[in-house]
Simulated scan of single mutants.
Amino acid sequence: MTSVLDREMYTEAEAARLLRVRQSTLHYWLEGAKGPKKEYKPILRDKPRGSRTVTWAEFVEAGFLREYRRTHNVRMAELRKFIELLREQFGVPYPLADRRPFVSGKDLVFDAQTAAGLGVDYWMVTVAGNQLLLTTPADSFSRRVDWTDNVAVGYSPDANSDSPVRVQPDIRFGKPSIKGVSTEVIGEQHDAGEDTDTIAEMYALEASDVAWALAYEFSVRATTQAA
C-alpha cells in the first residue's frame, strides 16, 4: 500500500504554483540537470525518476527548500549533501517531511549540517545557551506543516502564519482549502458576484474563513500575473 508520503499528488506545474517557485526550479530540485561537462544530481530525489509528477513528500520538502532559498541564497551543492546525510542519519527517504529532525533529532541535524560543510548562515539548527534550537527559516517551515506521528499531513501555502488555508493530501485532492472547502471555489463564487456572508452561508463557513480564502486566492493571482 502506498504511504501518504509516496502518494502522487501534483503535476510539476501545479506544485510550482502552490509553492510559488518557478517550474524550472522545482524540476531541477526533483530531477537534477545535465550540463555540458557535469551532471547535477537531484536534491529531493536520490536519483532522477524521469517523472513530472510530484509526490506529497516531495511537495513538502520543496516547501522547505523554498523557505531556505527565500531567506538565504544557499549553495545547492552543500544543501544537496546535507539532505543526503539526513536521509542516512534518520533512515528515511524524506527526512524533511519527518518531524524528528525539527524536534527530537536536532543533534543529528547539527552533525549533518557540519559534515555537509554548510556555512553557519545556512544552518537548520544553531546553538544558544548550550541548547540546540531551530534557526528562523527551519522554525518557520516547521510551523507551516501539520504533523501526525512525525509525518507531514498538511501544509500551509499562505505566507501569513495566521491563515487557516491548508493543503492536505486527503482533502480536495491536495488543493488549498478551508474546512474542506476549496479556496478556488470560494474565489469563483466571489467572481460571480456573491458577497462574503452569502458565500459563508453556502458552505457553512464563518465570514472570516471566506475572507482568508479570498485573501489567499487574490495573492496567488497577483503572483501569477507578475510571473
Rank of each mutant, 00 (worst) to 15 (best):
L214T: 08
E184P: 09
A97Q: 06
V54Y: 07
A128N: 13
V109H: 05
S156N: 13
H27V: 15
S104C: 02
G117L: 00
V167P: 15
K37G: 03
L214S: 08
F141W: 04
G174M: 09
M1C: 07
L86K: 01
K37D: 11
S3D: 01
V21L: 05
T196A: 10
L65K: 05
D98M: 05
T196H: 12
S177L: 11
I83S: 00
L44I: 11
T148V: 15
V54S: 05
S156C: 14
D46C: 07
L118A: 02
D158P: 13
Q113W: 00
L214H: 07
K34D: 14
W56N: 05
S51W: 03
A13K: 13
H190T: 10
V181Q: 09
R49T: 15
F173H: 14
L132R: 05
Q189S: 13
D162T: 10
Y155K: 11
D158S: 06
V103M: 04
S140A: 07
V120G: 03
M1P: 06
T2K: 11
R100M: 07
T196V: 15
T135Q: 02
A222C: 09
T114H: 14
A192T: 10
V109S: 04
L26A: 06
D162P: 02
W147D: 10
D98I: 01
W147P: 02
E88S: 08
L96E: 08
T53I: 13
V125Q: 01
A215N: 10
A62S: 09
S51H: 01
A211R: 12
R70I: 07
V153I: 10
P95M: 04
Y155V: 10
V145K: 15
V120S: 09
E78P: 07
R7I: 07
W56T: 04
Y40W: 08
S182L: 04
T71I: 09
Q113L: 00
I178Y: 04
S142R: 12
L85D: 00
L18D: 14
E217W: 09
P169Y: 12
G117N: 00
F141C: 03
G105H: 02
P157N: 06
W147S: 06
R70T: 11
R70Y: 09
A204Q: 14
M1K: 06
E188N: 12
E206K: 09
G129C: 04
R70P: 03
A97D: 06
P93Q: 02
P101I: 02
I83W: 00
Y203C: 12
Q168I: 05
N150K: 11
L134G: 01
L108H: 05
A213C: 12
A213Y: 12
E67L: 07
D146C: 03
Q23V: 15
M76C: 01
A152V: 10
H72F: 12
T224Q: 13
A222Y: 12
T126G: 06
N150L: 08
L5H: 13
R75F: 01
P42M: 01
L19A: 08
R20Y: 07
Q189A: 08
N73I: 08
Y40F: 12
L26T: 07
E12F: 11
R22H: 13
H72K: 15
I171Y: 15
F90Y: 09
F102Q: 01
A211G: 14
P164W: 14
Y68T: 09
S219Q: 15
P137Y: 01
L79R: 06
A128D: 13
A226Q: 15
S182C: 10
Y155G: 06
E58W: 02
R100G: 04
F90C: 05
